Simulated assay, not measured.
Amino acid sequence: MHNNQVQIFDLKGNFVRMIGWNETIKAAKGVKVTDIQVIFADFEGSRVLVYDLNGNLIQIISGEFNQPTDIVIVSNKIFVVNYKGKKASVFKN
């Protein structure tokens, strides 16, 4: 059972905020945090969600994935690895 959210804590372990609740995340995987964004794959929802550091939704990327599991950012490109189909999807960040 999943709880449809990503919880954010500070470096001391104190709860800061929860994101993804409104978007009904099914299973968050492959979380990537940059200086300006939090990006993660929704494995069972077959999509990628992008938030700013304040927890505001910036973008939902869908239609290209088949159970995404991992995310890597290189040179302003987001590489998303899909569990099914054994392929990677690439997007400009």
Rank of each mutant, 00 (worst) to 15 (best):
residue 3 N to R: 12
residue 3 N to W: 08
residue 3 N to D: 13
residue 3 N to V: 09
residue 3 N to P: 03
residue 5 Q to G: 10
residue 5 Q to V: 11
residue 7 Q to N: 15
residue 8 I to P: 09
residue 9 F to V: 12
residue 10 D to H: 09
residue 11 L to G: 07
residue 12 K to N: 14
residue 13 G to C: 07
residue 14 N to T: 10
residue 14 N to C: 03
residue 16 V to K: 13
residue 17 R to M: 09
residue 18 M to C: 11
residue 19 I to T: 08
residue 22 N to R: 14
residue 22 N to S: 14
residue 23 E to R: 00
residue 23 E to K: 05
residue 24 T to H: 12
residue 25 I to F: 02
residue 29 K to T: 15
residue 30 G to D: 06
residue 31 V to R: 03
residue 31 V to M: 07
residue 32 K to G: 08
residue 36 I to D: 12
residue 37 Q to A: 09
residue 38 V to H: 06
residue 39 I to M: 05
residue 43 F to D: 10
residue 47 R to A: 08
residue 48 V to S: 01
residue 50 V to F: 07
residue 52 D to H: 02
residue 55 G to K: 07
residue 57 L to G: 01
residue 58 I to M: 06
residue 60 I to C: 03
residue 61 I to N: 09
residue 63 G to S: 01
residue 64 E to D: 12
residue 64 E to S: 12
residue 65 F to C: 02
residue 66 N to S: 15
residue 66 N to L: 14
residue 68 P to Y: 00
residue 71 I to G: 00
residue 77 K to M: 14
residue 77 K to Q: 15
residue 77 K to T: 10
residue 78 I to R: 05
residue 80 V to C: 01
residue 84 K to V: 05
residue 85 G to P: 01
residue 86 K to Y: 10
residue 86 K to G: 03
residue 87 K to M: 05
residue 89 S to V: 11
residue 91 F to D: 06
residue 92 K to N: 14
